[in-house]
Design a protein around this nucleic acid. Structure first.
Lengths: 353, 353
DNA sequence: ATTATTTGCGAAAACGTTTTCGTGTTGAAA
DNA sequence: TTTCAACACGAAAACGTTTTCGCAAATAAT
């Protein structure tokens, strides 16, 4: 077992100084061609690679991005990660992941763990619990310490940072408009309780679409699901709740669900009542994940372009990181944060006419 | 914007030495109660946190685990990650992720990027391309440099490291036996080409089950899919290939597929021919992912307990990491690597009788 | 032959810690 | 009064780099 070789060892072996070795390896003009070749040959032979940690300490930057997300077993989030990783890697950055598990405390702990030098900046999506508690001090503190944050999907207006969001409102509106123009008269929405911002926005899109088409919203056609039923362990509860909802509203001929799971579960329930999709009831979901593609019938859905969100978020963060280097040289300029909106796209499959 | 405070700054501010500050914060008995309190109060006020990078450099360990996987947008892998993260975090480790994208080169590059000090050890699953090329030098080199590796799921016998595998052979055997005992006479298998070790093992399980039940294997009932059709972009090609296969083998009454995607795609094809599942054809898949749960009919499947695999892998790695510290103190002992087998479980749903 | 310039290299500082060891001061024991 | 331990603290090394600066030797210019 040969441990990693260091500059010091090379220097000792070749009877030169550490500085000489370092310079020789970085092709410094200061070093004679002779020594340069000698050192490089030796380094190659022993497969020398500079130690990242030492570099990080010296440069005071780690070339690593911290990602904090609520959940990784999730098509949307994993696609975002893929996008982030793609851009990050191509620009020489690594990606370190912390899962909040939708818990406020874990989110805070994870961020603290990473903020102490391990990373240069965060890309994150806020946990449901944090949204619920409305406690955002950890974000502000991190930013105040000079560590940039890019938020995606679940963001908060008031925090001063770059953001990447999907146009939830417009996306939902398009979806509901599609149902309307397809002839639906009684369109139900299956959504989350309001504190998850995306749920609120998507509900709003639903309402606006109705309004603009002169359809009066019917409160009993709005089903708000408790987030606790989202997990895979509560599939049956979710199904039951949706079934109760159906029983109470037999006239439904269109369903807009704010995520895939709600949509396919709704379809499952619909089938129990021997109704045909899309003939009797049309369904549109949100998020173009694996369920939408493989459900039967194929689910018409609003695609969020998750990977693109990740890519954009990574670009924003890295730009800011590299820009900061310059900022230190010139004086501080005004910081200006952007919010990038990723357009949604309605992907039509067989659950609509 | 107040930058992170360091020991040096505290020392200067309080007019003591850096050593004193460090000791005071670590509750050293060397420091008088007076100074200790003073320092701690100041540190708390300025929210002092030791810099991780500096600690890593000093301790020559990063408390970070590197994960290399072929793909993250994948139920199995993301569940494994969740398992790893769970254990890692509870033991004070972070998790840094590299995606190989099933490419040999990216696997190598990613590993090199992380191996230079960024992490203490790897948990990885080998890319298909690497398996195909049979080039494993990067694993051996990493291990030779004293960096432990734990492989999971897609592993290689010959490499000297801990492994966590699912009992693919037994799992498949159980599945096929189930089909047999349910009365299937012509059982097809949809599998991958042989170089993907899990595909090979699962095929082997299929063959053994047939043999032990005195059913002669029929080569035309074995469909080996090219891995390139696995991605979401080639769903149609996959479907076509399976359809051709069906056309040639109209007598199939049972299907065992080595992953979810093949299974649900097969079901899709079956439906085209107006055959009933499970009445005319029974289907069993592998991997209990989101597709199995939500497909219609629900897919009977072999569950691999992905999260448990991740947990076990993390435990193995961390144990070895902490053990190594001791090993440096006592002389080197014989290293002994384990291979942990995670039992599979047959989850019965509606695609079997 | 003397001075000026270039060349090639090493010493040392810096990044932020922890830890070993040394040392001056105090109070107690001799 | 002298000796010794206990106490409280600081200096310095170490982890592995990069980089600035200084310095000697070699070369060029006068």
């Amino acid at each position: 077992m040969k441990r990693k070789v260091t500059l010091k060892q090379i220097a000792r072996e070749l009877d030169v100084s550490i500085s000489t070795v370092s310079k020789a390896l970085r092709h410094s003009k200061e070093i004679s061609e002779d020594t340069r070749e000698k050192v490089q040959a030796f380094a190659k032979l022993y497969n020398y690679r500079p130690n990242n940690i030492a570099l990080s300490l010296k440069n005071r930057k780690t070339k690593t991005i911290g990602i904090i997300i609520p959940e990784i077993v999730h098509h949307f989030f994993s696609k975002v990660i893929r996008g982030i990783e793609l851009i990050a890697n191509s620009r020489g950055y690594n990606v370190i992941i912390g899962l909040s598990n939708e818990s406020f405390t874990k989110e805070v702990i994870n961020m603290e763990m990473l903020a102490n030098g391990s990373i240069d900046g965060f890309i994150l999506s806020i946990s449901k619990e944090t949204l619920l508690q409305q406690d955002f001090h950890h974000f502000n503190e991190t930013i105040n310490q000079g560590m940039p944050i890019v938020m995606f999907d679940r963001v908060i207006e008031e925090i001063n940072c770059d953001k990447v969001i999907v146009d939830d409102l417009k996306g939902s509106k398009k979806a509901v408009e599609k149902l309307i123009s397809n002839g639906c008269k009684n369109i139900a929405i299956i959504t989350t309780k309001d504190y998850v911002s995306v749920g609120r926005l998507r509900t709003q899109g639903y309402l606006e679409a109705l309004q603009e088409n002169k359809i009066s919203a019917n409160k009993s056609l709005i089903l708000k699901i408790d987030v606790e039923l989202d997990s895979e362990d509560h599939l049956e509860d979710l199904e039951n709740e949706i079934e109760q909802f159906f029983k109470k509203n037999k006239n439904i001929d269109g369903i807009f669900a704010v995520n895939e799971l709600y949509a396919v579960t709704a379809m499952k329930v619909v089938r129990k009542y021997d109704l045909k999709i899309p003939d009797n009831i049309q369904v549109i979901g949100f998020t173009d994940g694996v369920l939408s593609k493989h459900s039967r019938p194929g689910l018409t859905t609003v695609s969020q372009h998750a990977q693109e969100m990740g890519e954009k978020a990574a670009e924003l963060l890295i730009e800011r990181l590299e820009l900061e280097v310059e900022k230190e040289e010139y004086g501080e300029e005004e910081e200006h944060y952007q919010t990038v909106v990723i357009e949604t796209e309605l992907i039509e499959r067989d659950s609509t006419k």
